[in-house]
Structure formats: structure tokens, C-alpha cells
Amino acid sequence: MFELFRTLGNRKLFILLIVIVLFVALMGVTLGDRVGLTWPEKFVKDTVGFTQRIVNKPTQAVSGFFEDISDLNSVYEENDNYRIQVAELQRQLIDYRTLKNKNDQLQKDLEFTETQKRNSNKYYRFSHVVSVNEDVNNPTVNIDVGAKDGVEVGMAVTSIEGMVGIISTTTEYTSTVQLITSLSLTSPDSYSIAATVTGKDGTFGIVENYDKKQNRLLMSGINNNDPNKEKIEVNDIVVTSGSGGVFPAGIVLGKVRDIVPSEFGLTSTAKILPSASFVEWKELFVVIPGVDPNTGDGAQ
């Protein structure tokens, strides 16, 4: 081997080969689940995240300003609508409080364990997006909350509309969100979400794949053959079920657009239009299980 390179008289080829091997090793080592980041990575991420935040603030202000101007016409109507909605919300909040109290009481009577109780509680930690990676194969978004704010790897992240992804890495002051558009059956880095349909008890499916060509989430493993159970149908709204304990229940994923039989014909697969848009990045919410430490209120 060495003889070969010497006869070629090309040391550079040899160096290139070593570099390729080193890079492949690096990619292999950093692939998949890692326990935590090393301190140089954390340092770089935090410093760059800080500068990105500085750059990003005026950007969002300016782009928000232009959007505001274009929205100016519809603002009166919108305000009227919001006023009505807020009034309705107040009424519903009272209902919600009573129901929640009752639910808590029932959980207590049924002797739920602490983990089970914790699982039904969640709060939303507000965060700004500081930068976006538009790589099609590896879409990630950086947000400006980190381990210091109680964010941990594996938590769900939502926008106002619905779920956008999970936290893949955290540092002290920033964290990286891996979008659900990167869900894939073959990817070594993927995860799956236990899902159900609102208003239909007992329905269940697993969201673990994203069809990039059609922009649909695929929810597989649906049992639509049981005559005693309610079926999942088109236009149903899919939410996380909370079973399995990874993600809290009730995070909106999207709307069912199509149901097709799966490969082997025993179960069905639903094609879901994600409710979150993956282009408009402003603010995201990290869903943290447990009771909000600031208000002491586990509501919503």
C-alpha cells in the first residue's frame, strides 16, 4: 500500500485518504443518540447563539414592521374577532377550572402516581427563534432558551398552530430543535410520536414518518377494523396521546387528509397535513411537563 503511494509519488492522495477516514469516523461517532455535548461545542453554540440573537432582534423587528403595514387594513376586523374570542375564552376558562379541579380530585381518588400526575400537566415555555438551518435533509432551528430555563433533550416544541419538532440538543442558553419534517423510518436519529384523535377515545396510531414529497406526516398502525371502536376519518384532528410518557398529551399535530391501507393490509395509515407551517419562524413554545414554576399553575 505504502509502496503504491511512493511509486505514485503523491503524498497528498494519502493525506486525503486519511482525512476522509477521519471525517467518516467523526460522522459515525456523532451520529444518533449522544449523551451530551462536549464543552467546546457548548461554548461555540452559546457564543454564536448570542451573536445570532443580537442580529436576529432587529431583523424580526423590521420584517414584523413590514408585515404589520400589510396587515393594517384588516386590523379592525381582526380586533373585533379577538374581542369576541376573548369573551368566549373567559367563559370557557371557568368551565375549564371546574373540570380541572374535578379531574384532579378524581386522579387523587384513583391514587395516581406522581409520574402519572406530572404527565397530565404541562406548561409552555415561550422562546424566540434565533436562526434557521434550511438544509432539506437536516432541518433544524435554534431557539433562545436552554438548559438554564429547564429545557431538556426530547421535549416537544410547538408553534401557535401545532407541533414543530423536538429538542435535539441543549446548551446553557440555546437549544436546537429538530423538526418533525425530518421524521423517517430509516434514519438512525428519528423518534416516534404516539398519537390519537380528539374526541374519539381509544383511537391510536404512531407518527414516525414524514413524506417530504407530499408534505404529509404519516400515522401508521391504526386499527380501523374493530367494529366496537370509533374509526379515524378524514378531517379528524390528530393530537399526541401522552401514552408512552415521552410527550405530554394534547399537542396538536395536524388534520387527517387521507387514509390508506398499510403495506400488509392489517392496519391503516393516515396521511396528516401538519398544522404548523415550517416557513414562518417567529416564536415557538417548548412544552415542559410538570407545573409551571412561575405561576405554580399546571393549567394548560
Binding site: M27, E41, K45, V48
Partner: peptide, 14 residues
């Protein structure tokens, strides 16, 4: 690679 670490380190660098 480091700042947008989602899948692995190295592809962009290489």
C-alpha cells in the same frame, strides 16, 4: 455543523 447540530458533525465541514 456545530451550531445546527441535528444529525451529525462533519458533513458540511468535509
Amino acid at each position: 455543523d456545530v451550531v445546527y447540530y441535528g444529525a451529525m458533525l462533519g458533513p458540511y465541514s468535509f
